[in-house]
């Protein structure tokens, strides 16, 4: 177990360093943000002055070594556009993304998984067919479109919920529903398949023969065994929710990292983009590790390499 962890951590450090260097040089290949910042028709002297002020006049390798040595001291630099430390900006945006993705995950699991179980148990029920229709729709509707529909219905026509922003507690509802649709459909589909798969196994027949009701069989036996694929999907879905937030946050003006990412890329705000990419690399590495550890917790047959 500890050898497994140590190896995975080593891999993580190498990946993060690689990602950092890659994103640093890739961004600079495309130039710098100075021309986006100055006023139209700015003289060359004014452009050069700003470039020097922001440090983009130095050789790229010098910029990189400076950046890495700052990074080693956990100094992520300052936004070249907002002129504020990157840590402050990300710190103010990250909670919104976690809150949105968290609510969306709860919705997706809370609705998707029970729906999947229901669809597996009552395959021919009309509601199951409706459920399959929902799964298809959830997987094929683009969020920028379903988002606008949700706004039109709930904010404009009915006036129940705010269309945008994060001023009120209920502001999270529409973006969370919009963001959760795809994951909800995925959870429903995967759960349905997994439960169906379990239900066809001989031990279920034995349990039924013992006199247990269908509900008892599912609750006591099938669910636990169907959980493995759902857990591995959950780790992927969290990553999907975080990346899906890029569009949903823009549509609903939700002040999270997704919106910040789009704006920072367009504005070539390198220090922010770098920090977000680093954060993303950390999160996806951590999620994969967490999923691996969870497998063994749920299914004792799975042993991590290096364990007993």
């Amino acid at each position: 177990m500890s050898r497994f962890l140590a190896r995975r951590l080593m891999q993580a450090v190498i990946s993060v360093l690689g990602v950092t260097a890659l994103i640093f040089f890739l961004q600079r290949l495309a130039g710098d943000p100075v021309l986006l910042l100055v006023s139209e028709g700015a003289s060359q002297q004014a452009i050069d002055a700003l470039r020097a002020n922001l440090g983009f006049d130095r050789p790229v390798l010098v910029q990189f070594t400076d950046y890495m040595s700052d990074l080693a001291r956990f100094d992520f630099g300052r936004s070249v556009v907002q002129q504020v430390p990157v840590v402050d900006i990300i710190g103010s945006r990250l909670p919104y993304t976690i809150w949105l993705a968290g609510v969306a995950l709860l919705l997706a699991l809370g609705v998707g998984a029970p729906l999947g179980v229901f669809m597996a148990m009552r395959r021919d029920h009309p509601l199951s067919r409706l459920g399959m229709g929902f799964v298809l729709a959830g997987q094929s509707l683009p969020t920028f479109w379903s988002g606008v529909l949700l706004i039109l219905l709930f904010a404009v026509t009915l006036g129940w919920l705010p269309a945008s922003g994060a001023r009120e507690t209920q502001s999270v509802i529409l973006p969370a529903i919009c963001l959760s649709l795809l994951s909800m459909a995925t959870f429903a589909r995967v759960t349905r398949t997994a439960v169906l798969d379990e239900l066809s196994k001989p031990y279920i027949r034995a349990a039924r023969a013992k006199g247990l009701s269908m509900g008892q069989v599912v609750r006591r036996h099938a669910l636990r065994n169907s959980a493995i694929p759902v857990i591995s999907i959950a780790a992927l879905e969290i990553a999907n929710l975080l990346s899906g937030a890029v569009i949903v946050e823009t549509v609903f003006a939700w002040p999270g990292l997704g919106q910040l990412t789009i704006q920072s890329i367009a504005a070539r705000d390198f220090p922010i983009v770098q920090a977000i990419v680093l954060l993303g690399a950390f999160v996806s590495i951590f999620l994969n590790l967490a999923a691996d550890l969870l497998y063994s917790a749920v299914d004792p047959r799975i042993r991590l390499e290096g364990g007993k």
């Binding site: 706004i151 904010a155 945008s164 922003g165 003006a253």
Partner: peptide
């Protein structure tokens, strides 16, 4: 002054009185 990047969302805000 609020930040609302999507134009249709701005229209929705205006028409809903927000």
């Amino acid at each position: 002054f609020r930040a609302v990047p999507d134009a249709s969302t701005r229209v929705a805000n205006l028409t809903s009185g927000a």
